[in-house]
């Protein structure tokens, strides 16, 4: 029954991406190419990040929380934002409307992240006879990550692509984008600095991702209003 469990966890980890693509108008407008491009950009970004981490970070023997190292890690984490900017603003996408573009990029981004970080552990671990909740939680984390990626892409598209946005909202947009971009560092702090257990961390991630998604949505709709 272990293949069954692997199957379940894979559904939980990768299912939402597929559902998102097929349920939203993304599939109607054939934005797969954009998503794939975003995924490739993600891979390149991950490589650059890896090199930076390997260059600037010391290998810590203990699993303890070192503020300086974590700060450095958070800074390196902002390479992600640069990658996302490249995917959103620099890549030429053939006739694709703006609000489809950020969804496609966010989706491709999150999917590449899931494949890169979760597929191999899932394949090795969830097929084993031993049962743990870890892989189910990891799947939930992938869902939170999908929501966060799309939120970040939405905020990014507001920041970089939309010119006529209300002036009062600009600081809020930047603040939210900052929070979403530092989420990996925040969860890392919770896990190692405060010693939270995995289920609690995942719960926090799910909660924040929903909150951030709601805020981004509100911001996006506010910018959409033709009141400007």
């Amino acid at each position: 029954m272990t293949v069954f469990h692997f199957f379940n966890c894979a559904i939980l980890t990768f299912g939402p991406h597929a559902v998102y693509y097929s349920a939203t108008p993304l599939s109607e407008y054939d934005t797969l190419g954009t998503s794939i491009k975003a995924a490739v950009v993600y891979l390149a970004t991950a490589l650059v990040k890896l090199i930076c981490l390997a260059t600037f970070l010391k290998v810590s023997e203990s699993d303890s929380f070192d503020p300086y190292q974590e700060l450095l890690k958070a800074l390196i984490g902002f390479i992600d934002v640069a990658g996302l900017y490249f995917a959103l603003a620099q890549l030429t996408h053939r006739n694709i409307s703006q609000n489809h573009k950020f969804q496609a990029v966010g989706l491709g981004w999150a999917f590449a992240d899931s494949v890169l970080h979760r597929l191999a552990p899932l394949w090795v671990g969830a097929r084993g006879l031993e049962f743990t909740w870890d892989y189910i939680l990891q799947g939930l984390e992938a869902n939170a990550n999908l929501v966060l990626s799309i939120s970040l892409a939405a905020l990014g598209s507001l920041m970089w692509l939309r010119k006529n946005k209300p002036k009062t909202l600009i600081p809020i947009i930047y603040l939210c984008a900052g929070i979403v971009a530092t989420m990996p560092s925040i969860t890392s702090y919770l896990r190692r600095g405060l010693g939270w257990h995995f289920p609690k961390v995942v719960g926090f991630e799910l909660f924040t991702s929903l909150v951030m998604a709601f805020i981004s949505w509100q911001l996006f709709s506010a910018c959409q209003r033709p009141s400007m």
């Binding site: 029954m1 069954f4 469990h5 199957f7 379940n8 559904i11 349920a23 031993e130």
Partner: peptide, 27 residues
């Protein structure tokens, strides 16, 4: 090995399936 029963896996599949359906409809 500590293992989960088949019933648990089936139940999990059911829950996940309904989750995806709900997500789909919502979206």
């Amino acid at each position: 090995y500590q293992v989960a029963s088949v019933t648990f896996d089936l139940l999990l599949l059911l829950v996940l399936g309904s989750y995806l359906i709900v997500l789909f409809s919502f979206l």
